[in-house]
Design a protein around this nucleic acid. Structure first.
Lengths: 230, 230
DNA sequence: TCAGTGATGTTAAAATTTGTTAACCAGCGG
DNA sequence: CCGCTGGTTAACAAATTTTAACATCACTGA
């Protein structure tokens, strides 16, 4: 489940929010100040920030500006008064949404869910996890997972090839390009080596390796990744 | 620049919005009703919907539900009264954001920009797919799909020819043009080669390859794609 | 160290795609 | 009807890719 970080100096509001979101099944972290929040952000993967605009020290707008500069993390601003200027400035700084205290919890939840849905793709891609067909290709973990939960291990060379193809999905990769990614030798590379690797990959991830859908051959040019990514 | 579709029955609000967004450099289309909007959505690539929640006939919530079912198009709801229930229902149906009339234009613009930034990746990953007859030509996947769900694979040369013809549907492509797209060779291209490719393509996608409807020969000039695209 | 195992590289035959050729066909103006 | 131009078709040839079998390499644990 998604991880939400609440940044709010007022203890009662913070605790209320936290217990509500926790009851909804989210993983919730709390921070009283910007500094506090930053140390959590450094250590953990956070999916969404819920930030009070009025904080002692570095305020919510400042936090928004800084976070937006370095990530695509979802940000919802919370404020006590319905201050239109703050709201607009917050949005212009890149906050995704805004709620005013006292807020309707159901509304907050709806906004939160929407934002999480909207940022899901970006968050997954930033962790370099690609989904296609019935697989999930995790670049950091260097393996494939099937929807059913199975785990298909990839050899180093297979991994390199798949990574190169997936990250340039739709673009043709030449044998030379693939070869130089796989091997670190300078000369005398047999161009057929790549074909064999592709064949081995196909046997792992194609429904029917005889008529490949995921990795398509481009005669005379190379190979392309052609499965729909989501 | 992004293409925004405004769905609003009240002419003054619609015109005001349209001219404001146009002045901001967006491509703007306008629709008075849901039906009107749907015909625009079918024909053109739209990046974001700005929908009034209160429309005669099919209303904004219904439009949201239907669009969200088939695409990840960004949706911002506009409502006249500050009706909390409508607002929450809209968000729960998957609208990405909403604004209340009378709205601050700067706020609308900020929300709009944020949403476009969020949906940028998704839109980039969306595919060029042409529909004609009983086929669907998926450029990214480099193959044809039939309505029945079958999949017809195309060789590289066939794909290049079809892509060139389809993307310039209605315009005649000369043999030379087609040949230079297909071949990798520098010299001595035989002009009859294209004919053979066309024949192979026709046998894959013509109902009756003897009297072609999809790819028509233009005597002395070349070939045209002549099937209706939808 | 050394056998054993899995990963990687090489090769050659089989299969597929692409290119060439030539026979044949269709339309058209004399 | 003839000859001309250009298009279609089938058969074949050339180029490229796939496949399987095998050789080699690199690492592991005894």
């Amino acid at each position: 489940m998604a991880h939400i970080l609440i940044i709010e100096d007022e203890p009662v509001t913070r605790a209320t929010l936290a217990s509500y979101l926790d009851a909804q099944g989210y993983k919730v972290s709390q921070a009283e100040t910007a500094e506090n929040a930053e140390s959590i952000l450094e250590k953990q993967d956070v999916d969404l920030l819920l930030v009070d605009i009025n904080l002692p020290g570095k305020d919510g707008l400042q936090i928004t500006r800084e976070q937006r500069a370095k990530s695509e993390l979802g940000i919802i601003l919370v404020t006590g008064r319905d201050d239109e200027i703050d709201r607009i400035v917050g949005l212009e700084l890149g906050a995704d949404d805004y709620v005013c205290k006292p807020f309707n919890r159901r509304e907050l939840l709806a906004r939160l869910k929407n934002l999480l849905r909207r940022t899901e793709d970006v968050r997954r891609l930033s962790r370099r996890i690609y989904r296609f067909g019935k697989f999930q290709f995790d670049v950091a973990a260097r393996h494939l997972q099937t929807v059913e939960g199975g785990c298909i291990s990839l050899t180093r060379a297979e991994f390199e090839v798949l990574d190169m193809l997936v990250s340039r999905a739709g673009e043709v990769a030449s044998r030379d390009a693939l070869m130089s990614r796989v091997t670190h030798r300078q000369y005398g590379a047999n161009p057929r080596t790549v074909d064999v690797l592709i064949r081995r990959l196909r046997s792992k991830l194609e429904e029917d390796p005889a008529s490949p859908r995921v990795i398509t051959t481009v005669h005379g040019e190379g190979y392309v990744f052609t499965a729909p990514l989501n």
